Amino acid sequence: MTRPIPELSELRPLGDGPRLVALIAPAGAVLAERIDTTCALLTAMGYTPRLMDNARARHRYLAGTVEQRLEDFHAAFNLADVAAVWCLRGGYGCAQLIDHINWDALPDVPLLGYSDISVLLSAFHARVRRAIHAPVATELALCEQTDGLERQARLEAMASIAPLLAGESGHMSAEHAAGPTAPVEGVLIGGNLTTLASVAGTPAALHVPEGSILMLEDVGERLYRLERSLCQLLESLDASRLNAVCLGSFTGCDSGDSSIEAVLEEWLAPHDIALYHHLPFGHGEHNRAWPVGQTARLDASGLDWSPASTL
């Protein structure tokens, strides 16, 4: 059953459970006014935002040094009664943290974010921890600042987080683009293409279990750069582990006379891997949340997942 989309004042993006939400900036620096607006909106929604101590820090273009970001990261997950740890933004910097995270000291609290946060989501998946590819917290303000169809899409994206935190099944629309048409099942992995390609061959590399469905999106890249990232990513992993590739939005990406679908079809054809596109996630207003590491079923009717199994 489709849920009615609430007004921003009625929105409960994290559901009706524990009210404390930890806000961290593990990557790029965040503008002070965006932090203030985010905290004010969460408070108005009935939550208690806990802005971690170094979230306003700056080190070059980063939200503080590695040490500062790690301090906030560990502290956020160890807050009593925290409902989720929500990243304020992406940018660049998450890969710098992976080798220094004390995984044994992290309680099982879900992590929310996307873009550069894809690196952390994959690391959580590899360690059987809850990770949700979802809008970052500062995008709450965009629900308030836009109108019409864009506003509705952003509200729907935010509203899609709560069912995942509650452990509910979910659905996302998808269209077959190329390759085999038979339904497939697999573990949901992926995120931002450029980010994931940049960490190939490193300790932060994408975790790819047998039988994966690779979800990809990007923003602001020329097609040749996207192909370069695709080549880097696909050549760095065992393609036999992929059951399908799904494309979200490639916002502001200049494809010229070709398309990302055409490039991927060429790369995937020798491996007989199905390609789907037009999934509503990525940079832009259509950014529905999806559960990293959960098993899903994919066919022409869309992508469906159940919380029953996680790999």
Results as ranks from 00 to 15, higher is better:
175 E>S: 15
122 S>V: 04
50 R>G: 00
56 R>A: 14
1 M>D: 09
40 A>T: 04
198 S>I: 01
45 M>I: 09
126 A>P: 07
155 L>G: 01
65 T>V: 07
1 M>V: 14
302 G>Y: 01
213 I>W: 06
179 G>S: 04
153 A>E: 14
49 P>T: 11
127 R>Y: 08
264 L>V: 04
132 I>M: 08
162 A>D: 03
40 A>Y: 02
114 Y>I: 07
246 C>V: 15
217 E>I: 00
92 Y>W: 10
230 L>E: 13
54 N>Q: 14
247 L>S: 02
167 G>A: 03
254 D>F: 12
212 S>G: 06
192 N>F: 00
88 L>W: 00
227 E>R: 15
222 R>K: 14
109 V>Y: 05
197 A>G: 14
225 R>T: 11
84 A>P: 01
19 R>I: 02
99 D>K: 09
181 T>C: 05
110 P>G: 08
201 G>V: 03
79 L>N: 06
104 D>S: 15
154 R>K: 06
160 S>V: 00
128 V>Y: 05
121 L>C: 07
9 S>F: 01
235 E>M: 10
47 Y>R: 05
290 W>G: 06
222 R>W: 13
310 T>Q: 12
135 P>S: 10
37 T>M: 08
48 T>E: 15
289 A>V: 01
87 C>H: 04
91 G>S: 08
134 A>S: 15
107 P>V: 13
92 Y>M: 13
261 E>Q: 15
280 P>Y: 03
230 L>W: 06
11 L>H: 05
183 P>H: 06
50 R>F: 09
292 V>W: 02
289 A>H: 03
131 A>G: 12
217 E>F: 14
164 L>R: 02
183 P>I: 04
31 L>N: 07
289 A>F: 09
240 S>M: 10
105 A>N: 13
39 C>A: 15
208 V>L: 02
169 S>K: 09
75 A>N: 09
102 N>D: 14
275 L>T: 12
219 V>S: 13
23 L>E: 07
205 A>H: 09
213 I>C: 09
24 I>R: 04
258 S>D: 15
119 V>Y: 08
10 E>F: 01
71 E>P: 00
227 E>F: 09
157 A>Q: 02
201 G>D: 09
169 S>Y: 00
85 V>A: 12
125 H>M: 14
138 T>V: 14
213 I>R: 05
253 C>A: 11
68 Q>A: 12
29 A>Y: 03
250 F>N: 13
270 P>F: 08
164 L>W: 06
168 E>R: 11
261 E>L: 00
153 A>G: 00
69 R>P: 11
32 A>F: 06
248 G>S: 12
146 T>V: 02
174 A>V: 13
230 L>R: 03
288 R>F: 07
298 L>Q: 10
194 T>N: 14
157 A>C: 10
311 L>A: 12
204 A>S: 15
270 P>H: 06
173 S>H: 12
286 H>F: 10
152 Q>R: 11
118 S>M: 06
61 Y>I: 13
278 H>P: 00
200 A>Y: 01
289 A>E: 07
180 P>A: 08
105 A>K: 05
4 P>Q: 03
234 L>V: 08
152 Q>D: 11
241 R>E: 03
208 V>D: 09
57 A>W: 02
220 G>Y: 13
185 E>N: 10
132 I>W: 10
112 L>K: 04
273 I>W: 04
